[in-house]
Simulated assay, not measured.
Amino acid sequence: MARIVIDMDNVMADLTAHYVNSYEASHGIKLDLQALHGVPEGEVLPEGLVHKLLRSAGFFRTAPVIPGSQEVIKALMEKYEVFIVSAAMEFPLSLKEKLEWLNEHFPFISWHNIVFCGSKTIVEADIMIDDYDKNLRHFKGRQLLFTAPHNVHLADYERVNNWEDVAAALGVEVPAARV
């Protein structure tokens, strides 16, 4: 059975929308998501606020789920060995919060299939789904770049824009009403 590793942030959890919503809630200013295309993730918000949010209690726990991820990951698990791999060590508060978030939104994923690490360069699998070039460039298997505003200009990878694209690329069927 082929092994797939799936990133969490901006692949399963919509951190970009979470940054924008958090900024609007605290500053009363709504940012245009289209204006963020091509902007490095750490510069999405003014004044280095992304790094403050990433170190804030509750931030990772309250991120919205990217539509279709739950249904497609369930379908993938019927055909592949699936692991969730997140480089969580830089933000120690995220460890507990990410696990709680996964348990709430993806209760069908066993703790045996969750890996929190510092660097993904040690990860070995057949397929990696990630939004970051730094994680994909050293990966030796099939590399699927999940579209996020910070990576729209990258062209070196097989791109998937959403979970419907993931299902099609990996040959799993999910009823259209569920994705």
Results as ranks from 00 to 15, higher is better:
Glu81Val: 00
His153Val: 10
Val72Glu: 01
His18Lys: 12
Pro40Asp: 02
His18Ser: 08
Asn161Asp: 15
Val166Ala: 10
Gln143His: 04
Ser94Glu: 07
Arg61Asn: 06
Gly48Asn: 04
Gly42Thr: 01
Gly58His: 13
Glu90Met: 10
Asp156Val: 07
Lys98Phe: 02
Ile4Tyr: 12
Leu170Ser: 08
Phe91Trp: 08
Leu154Ile: 09
Asp32Ile: 01
Val72Tyr: 02
Ser26Thr: 10
Lys74Leu: 01
Val39Pro: 09
Tyr23Glu: 05
Ser26Phe: 06
Thr147Phe: 11
Pro64Ser: 08
Pro107Gly: 00
Ile66Gly: 03
Gln70Glu: 15
Tyr80Cys: 06
Val152Cys: 10
Leu45Trp: 03
Gly141Ile: 03
Leu170Val: 05
His150Leu: 10
Val65Tyr: 06
Phe106Trp: 05
Leu31Ser: 01
Val174Met: 11
Glu158Trp: 01
Ala88Asn: 15
Ala155Pro: 05
Leu53Cys: 00
Glu90Tyr: 12
Glu71Gln: 15
Lys120Phe: 06
Ala13Lys: 13
Thr62Trp: 10
Gly42Asp: 04
Ser94Met: 12
Ile109Phe: 04
His138Met: 12
Arg55Ile: 01
Leu136Phe: 01
Glu158Asn: 00
Arg178Pro: 07
Gly141Trp: 05
Cys117Gln: 03
Pro67Trp: 00
Val123Gln: 07
Lys79Trp: 11
Ala168Tyr: 12
Val115Gln: 10
Phe59Trp: 13
Gly141Asp: 07
Val152Ile: 11
Asn151Tyr: 12
His153Met: 14
Ser94Trp: 06
Leu76Trp: 03
Arg3Gly: 03
Gly68Cys: 10
